[in-house]
Simulated assay, not measured.
Amino acid sequence: MTEKDTAALAKTADGGDRRAAKGRQRRVSMADVARVAGVSSQTVSRVSNGDPAVIENTRQRVLDAMKELGYRPNSAARALKRGDFRTIGVITMSLSSTGNVRTLEAIASCASRAGYAVTLIPLDAPTQDNVRGAFTRLDELAVDAVVLIMEVHLLDTTSPALPPHVKVVVVDSDAGDRFHVVDTDQQGGARTAVRHLLELGHATVWHLAGPEESFAAGRREVAWEAALREEGREVPPLLRGDWTPESGYEAGLRLAEEPDCTAVFVANDQMALGVLRALHERGRRVPEEVSVVGFDDIAEAASFIPPLTTVHQDFAKVGELCVDAVLRELRGETVEGGTTLVPTRLVVRRSTAACPPDTAGKR
């Protein structure tokens, strides 16, 4: 590109009028790039869209001209022309939850590897109006697919206000046959935890559940009770927390006053941390007097005192399968409604042990 060409382009770009004096100039166009590169606008368009049929020498001339002029392709216009936006929307109930954050991280990483961006809309409060508003915003932002990380009671009472072509996959809910669901095997993990404690000789297992409105907490609670009844064991009174260590601590103080409590299954590791603190303060030794099992296997679980026995969730796998499902749908493959369950595994550490001899086998 000669100095004369550059000067001419600058004059064209600023319009040669008073607007240039105000520091405003028009956007460099595809025609500008074509003129500098010595090719047609159609060739510039093909290079912008990554057409492999363009001769390498020509492609490089176009790319050099784009760089020299500061040309930026209009990705929105190209998306409209293609009919897709290469974007996956995610609506999530909470960014404070370990599971949600780790699942979201996996979704973003997998989407990026597939050439998709992720648009995140966190809900400030779990209301139906907020859910409807999130669907509307995603429609306006133009996405190809949506991953919903939300509770079942909101999903069941809300109809997604999205265009028919937008694909939907759900995490942590029960969508029936409307959408495909990817989730951890909540019930299988809870049963494994309860059976582990019963096999250690404990007469029964107490349970600190999560919030009543939580799908995951509900599944774990159901499995806890079912596992006890299958073995003909007494079902102790249910305690309920809100996923926080503080609520676990309050429940732990109550459990410490129960002389027959020798085993506790806690619905998440954060509450289990609070339970451990309360038992320690009340002089109930773990695991010599009371065994404790958590759920999640957060990174800190191995550093609890004592290190926590817990159910490991593969949050990364959940995220990967969500992206896999939406990409298959976008390719036109059939993805049936129903649920894909990601297996859990019990990680045994030092917070569980055989039941004290004087209470073993009692019912």
Rank of each mutant, 00 (worst) to 15 (best):
G23E: 01
T310V: 00
A8P: 02
E300A: 14
P259Y: 01
D177E: 15
C110N: 13
E333S: 05
A299V: 09
D185N: 15
E105I: 12
T43R: 12
G252H: 08
E289Y: 06
L95M: 14
M66G: 03
G189P: 08
G201T: 02
S247N: 04
C322V: 04
E105F: 13
A190S: 10
V171T: 10
D32F: 07
G201N: 03
T184E: 01
R254Y: 05
P122E: 01
V166Q: 00
E68C: 10
Q186S: 15
L253S: 11
L346K: 09
P122R: 06
E246S: 13
G188S: 04
A325W: 00
A34H: 05
A8E: 11
A203C: 11
A316E: 09
E225C: 11
F85M: 05
N74Y: 07
V171Q: 07
A34E: 01
R195E: 15
S159C: 13
G274C: 08
G232V: 06
V44N: 06
V323A: 03
A354W: 04
V39Y: 02
G23L: 07
G201C: 01
R132N: 14
V54T: 02
Q187D: 12
L141M: 13
M93D: 12
R219S: 10
S41D: 05
S45D: 04
W206E: 00
S112V: 01
V62I: 05
I298R: 08
T184K: 07
Q42F: 07
F304G: 03
F295K: 04
V318N: 03
R240L: 01
A301G: 06
L321T: 12
V143D: 00
L80C: 09
A272F: 02
N100F: 13
W243V: 03
C110I: 11
C322L: 05
D183T: 14
S75R: 14
G99R: 07
V194T: 05
P160F: 02
L197Q: 03
H180R: 14
A278K: 08
R331A: 12
D139A: 15
L200I: 00
V323L: 02
P163D: 00
I91D: 01
H312T: 09
A76C: 08
G210Y: 08
D144H: 02
K81L: 07
L321I: 06
N49D: 05
G133A: 15
E289T: 06
N268D: 10
R219L: 12
A53H: 13
H202C: 00
S48Q: 13
R229Q: 08
G23S: 03
A227Q: 14
R219V: 04
I149A: 13
E329N: 01
C261M: 03
G115I: 02
P126M: 09
R18V: 13
F315L: 08
T192A: 15
S96E: 14
A216E: 10
A302F: 01
M66D: 05
E336W: 08
V311N: 05
R35K: 11
D144L: 00
I298H: 10
M30G: 14
K167N: 06
I55D: 15
K167Y: 02
K22R: 15
R72A: 11
S173Q: 09
T262S: 08
T158N: 13
L104I: 06
A272P: 05
A21Q: 13
T58G: 06
